[in-house]
Design a protein around this nucleic acid. Sequence first.
DNA 1: TTGTACGCGTTATCAC
DNA 2: GTGATAACGCGTACAA
Lengths: 356, 356
Amino acid sequence: MGSPGSSTGRDDRVLIVTSPPSRRRRATVHDVATEAGVSRGTVGRVINGDGYVSASAREAIEAAIKKVGYVPNTAARTLVMQRSQAVGFIVHEPHSLFLEDPNIGEILLGANTALSASDYQMVCLIVDSDRDTERVARYLSGGFVDGVIIVSARQDDPITRVVERLSLPAAFVGHPPDLGTAAFVGIDNRGSARTITTRLLETGRTRVGMIAAALDRDSGADRLAGFTEALGARFDPTLVEPVPLYSYRAGLEGMRALLAREPLVDGVFAASDAVAAGALEALREAGRSVPEDVGVVGFDDSAWATRCQPPLSTVHQPAAGLGQRAAESVLRQVDGAEPEVDQIVLETPIVWRGSA
Amino acid sequence: MGSPGSSTGRDDRVLIVTSPPSRRRRATVHDVATEAGVSRGTVGRVINGDGYVSASAREAIEAAIKKVGYVPNTAARTLVMQRSQAVGFIVHEPHSLFLEDPNIGEILLGANTALSASDYQMVCLIVDSDRDTERVARYLSGGFVDGVIIVSARQDDPITRVVERLSLPAAFVGHPPDLGTAAFVGIDNRGSARTITTRLLETGRTRVGMIAAALDRDSGADRLAGFTEALGARFDPTLVEPVPLYSYRAGLEGMRALLAREPLVDGVFAASDAVAAGALEALREAGRSVPEDVGVVGFDDSAWATRCQPPLSTVHQPAAGLGQRAAESVLRQVDGAEPEVDQIVLETPIVWRGSA
DNA sequence: TTGTACGCGTTATCAC
DNA sequence: GTGATAACGCGTACAA
């Protein structure tokens, strides 16, 4: 092993014992090079697949890599390349929504598929407290990701501001950010709500209400707006029951309240499938049969839709597609494209089942 | 500005235009130093809060940081510190499970809370294809994370092997790895299943069956083993209906099959709440009332349990606690502790509601 | 074809 | 108190 101090400064570290007891030191390109009896440059050429290496050298190096168990250090590579080959996926939701919202999981998987195809690593970051907000902002600033996909951004969100300041390639899913120049992929909540409400009216209902969830978010407000438009002159505000969340429980309680106030209601647009499922339960309690006495429609076409009794008529939300398109937009921007062209609105076909 | 080539090599980069059109160059410590008219060393001292800086220098530097919009480059910091202040959370599930399993979300949130409290960034990595497996393995090797929490590892999983080879601090949640030395946090599936089955028997049922899901995973197999133990001599294999997944649909179809084969069944242990919810639907179809004709118990105490009609008697699974304990174990190991002491089994209280 | 040397942005250790 | 300067591990022009 050579006497201490005789070799270059670089090798001194072998003698330094770090505080965690005996965590094995990582092999470096340097180690591979000495093991194979070549220089670091040649090793680099083999690793990156750039030609101009003799067969003998390549062989020796590949053997050495296996022997010392070399794995490239991504942090170093990121530093020198100014590229991490990673894209962040930021989820900023209160607990309940993260757990209940079936769309987020699908958006996540859709984005991952697209990124994976381009050999990018998706790193999902959860923002669940103020402390998280700050830390995630630091993380993004740190150059660990080449871009971000943001689900449900807040107005004037610190994270959005950081992204803007770094001019980090970004795509917003579902809820548009306040900056008009950013890429956005989503659906037409208002138009879809209008369409399915119209469809519900066409089944001959005369007293159609809505359980309107999450009016503080644009998706919630837009769905109510579409509902209002569809009814036109027939719109009656007393038939709208606002509830806080897109949840089963909100639907259950909302429907109970609506029934108590308006017993004659014969049609309901629930702001999401989970809400609709809760509404069905309330109707069952009240002895109303669906769709005979009351027609019910939902929104999302999530797993709820098919497991309800009767299965829900609803608006199909292309969640996986949203994630995929967002990922593709980010990758385009990483390659130098301008974001403003990416204002994508995906189709939302109506799926008609038995509940109306 | 200055004439080209006249300054040090370091400043040449200003002249180099990278291919992405006009992405703003990041400010560095160097920039801050020149702006404030001090050296890099002093700037470093201010950033890291180490004392020994004059008030005037500190003021000038803080102003400069604001002015040039400096944010530390985490990749560089990781490289020199050999620490990323990040912990990976690896989810390795087929689509359906990731979307349906209510526990994963809670485990995730629990882990994030614990990591966040120690100012660690949690990065969630999804493994959804062979390609993902390889890329995630590379990512872990790259030094981007100081440790990992692994949910549902496979036997002989490439990721597990990489973790082992790097001796990366790790904690396995739910499904124990094949290596006995690793940290593990989970529940006693077999004991819990035995307890709740016994409890169901005590309500006076005489023909008790089980819808046994996911027998290819140890959780599924263990729950069946517990059920078998509880019945002892009364165990009758024809009352066990195996189904592939912990899903609503599996429960629905499993219960139909069980009823067709054994119409006299008066008690059912469903391997999860989702399965139990499906079973309730099948019983309703068949005109059996719960709990009068048939007692039903589940497992997980997830959102399903309270939204069923009647609400489920079930085994409470402390999902958030699992995530939290796993995170704490990883953090301890990052600080140099040995993993083997962390073989944690959390309590699973029985929650008795109306379904049995 | 291969080796050398420099720089990526930090932190940390020295002399001054 | 403060300013040089050596690492960290890797990519890559450039020289040999």
